[in-house]
Design a protein around this nucleic acid. Structure first.
Lengths: 203, 203
DNA sequence: TATCGAACGAACAGGTCTGTTTGACAAAAC
DNA sequence: GTTTTGTCAAACAGACCTGTTCGTTCGATA
């Protein structure tokens, strides 16, 4: 029985995304979300049981959007080598960081505010799976013996660029991170100099 | 005219640190801070004009403590090569991450909660200066042509380890970050094989 | 001993917060 | 045409928030 299909929920989520991300979650009350959504409070509580529920939905939605955006980019480069496809993730990150209103990783920010709330923690965990999974999928053909660590390192570099861009208000970090990622990938690639286990300085 | 020298302020800051870091800043009211400090509310407002003032002081104090901890470690290795000294920062980070109650970078967390508050932003900026400054000082003798970018990359990797450890609840990230940092340092080092221990004759 | 300053404690002001309730209304479904 | 469903508006409860006020206590100092 939708007056207009799914608009109320979507409007709430869009407003929540905008306000929560820009201002912080605890700093934005339900009253403001519903006012700027043009939705009655009672209606909101029909769609979301609690504020925490709304927060979790906001995070899941944001995760899905980012995942789709990255996936689109990576799939557009289906013909390129795996390394290039992985690095293109950092190009998307560069775009994101460059957008006005960028304020760091929404999930890191949410984790800062909601340390002990199950629903929110679940939504954060939900987001944390896809990037490693994507790297893992793309790394598949490489078959290096410590891909797991490489993958973790790449995720870390991604997180670091996100955090540094936020804290230092710098737009350059994704470019720098891309170079670090290149380095990580180049070193462990089954390359001409054959020896790719653990970067020992005594080479 | 202190009953016991400086205890009230310090007790407030210790409690603020414990509660704000563990639970989030907005989630902890002044009432709880003063209750657990054993300080009257009116007394607290003598020492700190506003809650934001207390938050900023909490952050500055935490920054100073961490800086001192890292500096101690780095100075203890005054005889080692600059690369080793830089890498030892990641060893300290590993310790920090491994401590019970670790919940990510306090400054990133505060930035998430207080986007538009001058005092808090200043305290965060205050923290953001020392790590690049330390790296810069240690890198001094290396004199590579893009030390600035290397420095930024190292800071990023540090931030990434912090963030990933928090979000993934993993203790391994500082070790992984250390390897990434090794890679960064090894690649841009002027002479890959030179075993010069006393290159840092700055003192 | 008299004075002063630091801290206490408890109430209070004025907001804001989440979440609930109620009654009405309009559109879609039957 | 009646019922169901989604939505609205507004008031309300009860808790919690920051920050202020004010009279009191108590130790140090002069």
């Amino acid at each position: 029985m939708e007056r207009k299909p799914g608009t109320v929920r979507e409007r709430l989520l869009e407003t929540a995304d905008r306000l929560f991300y820009a201002t912080g979650i605890h700093a934005v009350g339900i009253d403001r979300v519903i006012a700027e959504s043009g939705v009655a409070k009672s209606t909101m509580y029909v769609h979301f049981r609690t504020k925490e529920d709304l927060v979790a939905a906001y995070l899941r939605r944001r995760s899905d959007i980012m995942r789709a955006r990255v996936t689109r980019e990576v799939e557009a480069r289906a013909e390129e080598p795996a390394e290039e496809r992985i690095l293109s993730v950092f190009d998307v990150l560069h775009e994101v960081i460059s957008e006005p209103g960028f304020r760091g990783c929404a999930f890191a920010n949410a984790a800062a505010e909601y340390p002990h709330h199950a629903d929110v923690q679940e939504a954060i965990a939900y987001d944390r799976t896809w990037l490693p999974a994507l790297f893992s999928r793309l790394l598949g053909p490489l078959r290096s013996d410590n891909d797991d660590e490489l993958m973790a390192a790449l995720v870390q570099v991604y997180d670091g660029a996100n955090a540094a861009a936020h804290l230092d208000d710098s737009k350059k970090s994704a470019r720098i991170a891309r170079k670090t990622a290149e380095l990580l990938l180049a070193t462990r690639k089954p390359a001409p100099n054959s020896n790719r286990t653990a970067a020992n300085a005594g080479d």
